[in-house]
Design a protein around this nucleic acid. Structure first.
Length: 263
DNA sequence: ATAGGCGCCTGTAAGC
DNA sequence: TGCTTACAGGCGCCTA
């Protein structure tokens, strides 16, 4: 599923294709999922940034197009059976492909995120300014399990199910541990682990799972899946101790961890 | 405030 | 073999 590394990889590949280009038409049949897209037509793409899992396209005339890929969304150069939105560019086409339709598009006045509450309340970028003191304070202030806290986008923006599990493994922390129960040293390990896991995943172009749900516009797969220590490895040996990886449901999500290495 | 559960979606896999 | 059911999950929403 597209999380920070996959969205960042998408951003890097899309920017050279779109910078300076006019969006002539956005064709789709779902005005509830893809809102106000008429407002983007005729505007040019000035820049493309990322906040958490959101792509932010800065357009001319003070407009902004915000895209969330959801669970299965992605941009493709070729039309697919699940192409939901066709972008007609001055020099070609781009398709928003999304089998499960969890992806969303909004076109708003630049920075006006009133109808996108999650974007408005996102926590800090873990690969940007990511100060430790407020991170530790937020952990100490909650009894929720670490896994749930990591998925909330408040401690750090852009972490999803895969990277939450991988960061907790790297930090040696059990996903069920309440945030409150962490020592400062443990919180510091988690803070470091988030940065290192996400940095490595970005460097490798994200994770492409065996279902190939996540693909880049050019079809080049990510490379981080080969480094997964726990995610999707139920019953397989822990790379650290060799014991079997367990899988539970935490906060409604499949959660993978090593009971020996994650206390 | 918080934690759990459901609904949205559809392709794939497991089970009978 | 062919059908049905379960499951994957980002996020919003509802409830106890």
């Amino acid at each position: 599923m597209p999380e920070l590394p996959e969205v960042e990889t998408t951003r890097r590949k899309l920017l050279p294709l779109l910078r300076g280009k006019a969006l002539l038409k956005l064709l789709h049949q779902d005005p509830l999922r893809y809102r106000n897209t008429g407002e983007a037509e005729g505007k040019r793409v000035l820049d493309l940034e990322r906040r958490g899992k959101f792509l932010l396209f800065a357009l001319t005339e003070g407009k902004e197009m915000v895209v969330h890929l959801g669970m299965t969304g992605g941009f493709r150069k070729e039309k697919t059976p699940h192409a939901r939105v066709e972008f007609v560019l001055e020099d070609g086409h781009l398709f928003f492909h999304d089998p499960r339709r969890f992806g969303r598009i909004w076109v708003v006045k630049r920075g006006a995120y009133g109808e996108i509450p999650l974007l408005a309340r996102l926590g800090p970028e873990p690969l940007g300014a990511f100060p430790f003191p407020p991170f530790y304070e937020a952990l100490k202030g909650s009894r929720k399990p670490l896994k749930a806290l990591l998925l909330e986008q408040r401690l750090a923006a852009g972490v999803g199910n895969i990277y939450a599990d991988e960061a907790l493994f790297r930090a040696g922390l059990n996903p069920l541990r309440p945030g409150q129960s962490l020592s400062e040293a443990e919180a510091f390990r988690l803070h470091q682990a988030l940065r290192s896991v996400l940095e490595e995943a970005v460097a490798l172009g994200g994770s492409t799972l065996s279902d190939k749900t996540y693909q880049q516009p050019d079809g080049v797969p990510g490379g981080f899946q080969a480094r997964h220590a726990v995610y999707g490895r139920k019953g397989l040996p822990c790379p650290r101790c060799g014991g079997p990886i367990l899988r539970l449901r935490v906060a409604g999500r499949g959660t993978h961890f090593c009971p020996r290495c994650q206390a």
